[in-house]
C-alpha cells in the first residue's frame, strides 16, 4: 500500500492519538488531508510554505506576515517544512475540545510577530496594515490610530505600551470572539470529511 499511514515510518499513529484530542481513525483521516496538502506542489510528504499558502489562499505566491507566523508555529523543528507530527500537534490546538489556555497561548504567539514575549503596538499596526491591504480596505490614519488606541486602552492594563501574555489572557476572556479562528469545527468530524482513510486504516476506533 502506497502512502498508507503504516508506511510512514516516522509516525506512530497511536502515540499521536494518545497525545492529542484525536482518535486513531481521526489521525488517519488527518493523514489523508496531510497527504493532499503535502503533495500539492512538491510531492515529498512535507508541507512547504508555498503549499500552506496554496491551501489557505488558493495562490502559491505572495508574502504575508500571518502566513509566516502560522507556518512558524506549525514548524516546531524550525527546519522550513511541516511534518505530519507537527501538523497534528498544531491542529490539536484547533480542536473544539482543546483547552482554552492552549488556544490563548497559540493566538498570543501568532500575534507576537517579533517573539519578544509581548504583543507590541508596532506589531498590531503592522498586522492591521496587512489585513487592510489583503482586503483592499482603506481607513484614515486617524481612524486606524483610534482603533489601535482603543484596543490598547482595553488590553494593556498596566499601560506600558505592550500586551503581556497575562493581559492577553484577561483580554480574550473578556472578548472570546477573538479566539474564533482558534477553533476548527471540521476537526470534530474529520473522519467524515476524509472518508478515504477507511481504505488505509488498520484499526477500528
Amino acid at each position: 500500500r502506497q502512502n498508507s499511514p503504516r508506511t510512514c515510518q516516522y509516525v506512530d499513529l497511536a502515540r499521536l492519538a494518545h497525545d492529542s484530542p484525536f482518535s486513531v481513525n481521526e489521525v488517519e483521516a488527518l493523514y489523508e488531508l496531510f497527504k493532499k496538502l503535502s503533495c500539492s506542489i512538491i510531492d515529498d510528504m512535507l508541507i512547504h510554505k508555498e503549499e500552506l499558502r496554496l491551501a489557505l489562499f488558493q495562490a502559491p505566491y505572495g508574502e504575508n506576515i500571518f502566513l509566516d507566523r502560522v507556518f512558524d508555529l506549525f514548524d516546531e523543528k524550525k527546519n522550513g517544512v511541516i511534518e505530519f507530527e507537527e501538523f497534528i500537534h498544531a491542529l490539536s490546538v484547533f480542536h473544539p475540545n482543546a483547552p482554552i489556555e492552549e488556544k490563548i497561548d497559540f493566538a498570543f504567539r501568532l500575534y507576537d510577530l517579533r517573539q519578544t514575549g509581548f504583543i507590541e503596538r508596532e506589531e498590531v499596526q503592522q498586522m492591521v496594515a496587512t489585513i487592510l491591504m489583503e482586503s483592499d480596505m482603506t481607513l484614515s490614519d486617524e481612524l486606524l490610530n483610534l482603533i489601535i488606541d482603543k484596543t490598547f486602552a482595553d488590553a494593556d492594563s498596566d499601560k506600558d505600551g505592550k500586551i503581556s501574555k497575562a493581559e492577553w489572557k484577561a483580554y480574550v476572556l473578556k472578548h472570546p470572539s477573538l479566539l474564533k479562528n482558534m477553533t476548527l469545527p471540521y476537526l470534530k468530524d474529520v473522519t467524515t470529511a476524509f472518508p478515504s482513510f477507511i481504505f488505509n486504516t488498520e484499526v477500528e476506533d
Binding site: 489562499f57 498586522m127 489585513i131 489583503e134 477573538l178 476548527l184
Partner: peptide, 29 residues
C-alpha cells in the same frame, strides 16, 4: 443627544479577518 459613543471595532477583530488565519481553508479545497 448621544452620550452613546459609536462602537469601535477592536484591532484584533480586524486582524482575525485575514484569510491566512482561517485554517478552515484546509478543508474547503
Amino acid at each position: 443627544k448621544g452620550s452613546d459613543s459609536p462602537t469601535i471595532i477592536n484591532a484584533f477583530q480586524l486582524i482575525g479577518m485575514s484569510s491566512f488565519l482561517d485554517l478552515s481553508g484546509f478543508f474547503e479545497q
